[in-house]
């Protein structure tokens, strides 16, 4: 089982790496999918593994996006250091807000995260002099990667860059969920009261994973900024947080790859359906959500696992 899993994983990443040949004209869209996948992976860590229900995760995506954008707009256009700085700032934002989020029930968490997300959105909206407000941040100029590889209009450099960064963070997340810490998170999701009774510092665990998740979300946001050379207010919007939830659920939560699958399905469907009619897209998105939950919230990957006979794990907070 394990060996087969490993082969599947290797195949997954090899196909992505072969993207330069397989979908050369779709590289910009593929980069967007990968970025959304990383964002969904960051969300999977807190929702799928730790059971934190949030509707404000776009806050950290936005912090990363604006950090990278502001750095690049003010002369610090070197991409890798900008990316790291953005990730660290998002991590800091996650760390600062984590005490508010980790305590409390699902409902309190839901409202706190929603509130924090809106707060940040409104902040960016009001600080138009710095962020560009509703017009978006202009003048983001990213220098060539390693001082040599320019971000070309076909998105080749961007795709390679995004894929490499996403892969590195994915590996870290993969280690995390397979470590004793990851096991503890699953324990906390299943039964936080018992975790306390066996001596677990539940809040500390949750704060740690929340911070790491915020960092990953921030890096995803920064990647979006660096590859599109623009930051719009929508990076912080409630809609982005809600879409994130949809992507993860569509793909399957608590399975590590669910975010990527969900992001791909969601964004490709969005790309083609909304060009037909945006209203049409929104309706079917909503109907799809209702249906997924009615049928059983395992997502595409959960379904695949069931077919392959892999033990499935329910995602999200216990009822």
């Amino acid at each position: 089982m394990r060996v087969r899993g490993l082969w599947l994983e290797a195949a997954f990443w090899l196909v992505l790496a072969a993207g330069f040949v397989l979908w050369p004209s779709r590289l910009p869209l593929a980069s967007q999918v990968l970025i959304a996948g990383l964002f969904a992976l960051s969300y999977d860590l807190i929702l799928g593994y730790a059971g934190i229900l949030s509707l404000g995760h776009a806050a950290y995506f936005g912090v990363g996006a604006y950090s990278a954008g502001l750095l690049a707009a003010h002369g610090w256009g070197e991409p890798i250091s900008g990316l790291i700085a953005a990730g660290l700032l998002a991590a800091l934002a996650g760390l600062i807000t984590s005490p508010l989020v980790v305590r409390g029930t699902d409902l309190t968490r839901l409202m706190i995260t929603t509130g924090l997300g809106l707060l940040l959105f409104e902040l960016a909206n009001r600080l138009g002099a710095i962020t560009g407000g509703v017009d978006g941040l202009q003048g983001v100029e990213v220098q060539p990667l390693f001082g040599a590889l320019r971000f070309d209009i076909y998105g080749r450099t961007a795709y390679g860059y995004v894929l490499a960064v996403v892969f590195v963070l994915f590996l870290a997340a993969r280690r995390l969920v397979r470590s004793p810490f990851g096991l503890s998170l699953r324990g906390i999701r299943g039964n936080p009261a018992r975790m306390r009774a066996i001596g677990c510092r539940v809040d500390l665990h949750l704060a740690a994973v929340y911070t790491f998740s915020a960092a990953c979300a921030g890096v995803a946001g920064a990647l979006l900024t660096q590859t599109t050379q623009f930051v719009g207010l929508d990076v912080l919007s409630f809609g982005r947080s809600a879409e994130l939830l949809v992507m993860l659920i569509v793909g399957g939560a608590g399975l590590l790859y669910g975010g990527f699958i969900g992001a791909a399905v969601f964004m490709i469907a969005h790309h083609y359906l909304s060009s037909l009619d945006p209203v049409y897209w929104q309706f079917w998105l909503g109907a799809g959500l209702v249906l997924i939950v009615l049928v059983g919230r395992d997502g595409i990957l959960g379904l695949g696992h069931r077919v392959l006979g892999v033990r499935r794990r329910r995602a999200g907070p216990a009822p």
């Binding site: 280690r175 470590s179 990851g182 096991l183 324990g187 066996i198 665990h205």
Partner: peptide, 20 residues
């Protein structure tokens, strides 16, 4: 489950890097 409890005691629970 028992491993989970054991890891809390030994402090391994806070290790997010080395595999189980």
């Amino acid at each position: 489950s028992v491993l989970l409890a054991t890891c809390q005691r030994t402090g391994a629970a806070l290790d997010a890097w080395r595999g189980l």
